[in-house]
Design a protein around this nucleic acid. Structure first.
Lengths: 341, 341
DNA sequence: CTGAAAGCGCTAACAG
DNA sequence: CTGTTAGCGCTTTCAG
């Protein structure tokens, strides 16, 4: 933003007509003389005119911009979801503004404020694992700003959501472990307040119970932090007395499962012979790591698109809108980190 | 953007003072009575006031927003660069707006227009492989909008750039292939107008010449499209008469090299015994694929940060600014897709 | 079909 | 220390 940018006023003066006529011509209003319109368009071209969306937004009280908050852009699940959103949003004339919370509650709050200050027309949020208090998001709802939660959602918020059936995915994954002979299956999860982790834990527990396996509290791990703690916890589990050690690890997600697989390789523990590993998400590396990782795949790109669709529906009919939850399908991808049936 | 958002006017009325005083208090101007200031801040809090950056931007002619255009968000190199930018930008009070060109010139042009219309304070661009005409970017420069090109840059543009030494990286990679006994080394590159590809090709050629190997035109491939064509071309090379077949493939980047590696596996061609493969970029999968991919790594996150730094320098001193090019270090990561020395 | 005028929410002289 | 005033660039009545 500097000088030298032509405005409708410049066009109006050059053409010796009023700025309202220019404005009309530019926006293709019907009640404008063809000749005038042509002249305006030509002059705009000549002056390299670029509409000022900032001024427009202020006037029409819409920015045609959507805000997105994700924990970490560079995780493939999120960049892929963003990519889906971006494509869908662009098709409907929306730009997107992106923030990352880096799994920090404070940063997430700041992000929300920043995007609200920018008067985005809607917010698409995947919550940080740290977030339990959802007042900052609730306040958006109170201000009538459409919010769509995706993947990392919260029960406490009456908003549109895009999720996969985490319970079902976890159930299938755990059942697969059981069916391939595992009995002491550990769950490596996130904080106790982390909704998505709890859903997956419930699926895991239900699968155990369904197959008459009594859950062992010792094998259920809640990590407060998702980068280094999971590895520590796995090491701890592996140092338990032989009979108490797990014979399978069901990890909250692939970004946890992949390093776990590497750790096991370092320790010369054979996968899946000695221990099976299952992840969740299906990050690209998971197919390539040796052994390839059995995981529950989520349709990240489609989830992104869907989130935009839900926003659009909601924004068309803000007054009588009831929060919908779109549940997408997961697929259990059986690869080589689990035993054959 | 809907109703119910408090403005400084609301605060002024409630407190029975002028809006300029409110404005001053809110921005922490020095010449405001402590009491007044306190009252304003409290009232702002109470009304859930959120500054309107749209109005601010229009008035001060700066948006504190940066535009980013990348070919594809979900490629790790780009999402990682974006992540670096986002973190650095946030520290300096900038928001970011993201577009993807999807390797389409037309889309890239549209992106530029959209971001210009949004009056971003600067643009960070990694050009599509299709882009040869750079007039759309030149026009930004003419309008005094700071532009920083990163990774996918163009020679024709006098702007700040963040690159790696592509020539050097390619030279090292090719030399490594030669030193491990390869003689018929193919280059799988991009379009002839694709700057980065040409740089890498030159590094490749210079390495060959340096080692007295006469380049074979037949082994130098230019793909117009980067998703499916490279595989076709490799298949073609593999169907040449035995003596004309390559014994190594140096690929423009990892997103090409990885599928190539898979193709070779399908065809039961042993890597690196029968043919060596080298990539460029170092995507996360490259370390995990079997055999792991020898590649030239680029510091994506740092390149992103650096790009923001260059923007900041430039925007501080727009008038007498000379375009700098920051060249970052690459590292040859020798893994298992090439033979041992 | 066109123009005049008001105003979106905010900042920044200028004057007190 | 505070208030008045004039816009930033645009859209949108309301008149003609």
């Amino acid at each position: 933003m500097r000088n030298t940018q032509a405005t409708i006023r410049d066009i109006a003066i050059k053409l010796n007509i009023s700025i309202s006529t220019v404005s009309r011509a530019l926006r293709g209003a019907p009640d404008v003389n063809q000749e005038t319109k042509k002249a305006v368009l030509e002059m705009a071209e000549k002056l390299n005119y670029e509409p000022n969306r900032v001024a427009q937004s202020l006037r029409i009280k819409r920015t045609n911009t959507l805000g997105i908050i994700v924990p970490e852009i560079s995780l493939h699940f999120f960049s892929s979801a963003i990519s889906g959103m971006q494509e869908e949003a662009a098709q409907h004339g929306y730009s997107i503004m992106i923030c990352q919370s880096l799994e920090s509650f404070e940063t997430e709050k700041q992000n929300v404020h920043m995007l609200a200050a920018n008067r985005v027309d809607g917010l698409l949020i995947s919550m940080s694992s740290e977030t339990k208090d959802v007042a900052h998001i609730q306040s958006l709802i109170n201000k009538n700003i459409p919010v769509v939660l995706f993947d990392r959602v919260s029960d406490a918020l009456p908003v549109a959501k895009v999720v996969v059936d985490d319970h079902d995915g976890a159930f299938k994954a755990t059942e697969h472990l059981i069916q391939t002979g595992c009995r002491r299956i550990a769950y490596i999860g996130g904080p106790l307040t982390f909704y998505i982790s709890n859903q997956r834990k419930r699926g895991y527990l239900d699968a155990l119970l369904h197959h008459n396996i009594i859950p062992d509290e010792q094998l259920i791990v809640h990590c407060h932090e998702l980068h280094t703690e999971p590895l520590e916890q796995v090491k701890r589990l592996l140092s338990l007395p032989k009979t108490q050690q797990p014979d399978a690890l069901f990890c909250l997600n692939d970004p946890i499962a992949v390093p776990v697989l590497q750790l096991l390789k370092e320790k010369n523990i054979r996968v899946p012979e000695e221990i099976s590993v299952v992840g969740f998400t299906n990050e690209p590396v998971s197919a390539f790591i040796e052994p390839s990782l059995t995981t529950v795949s989520q349709p990240s790109h489609e989830m992104g698109k869907k989130a935009i669709e839900l926003f659009l529906e909601q924004s068309h009919d803000l007054d009588n809108f009831t929060p919908v939850t779109a549940t997408m399908k997961t697929t259990l991808l059986v690869r080589n980190s689990t035993r054959k049936v």
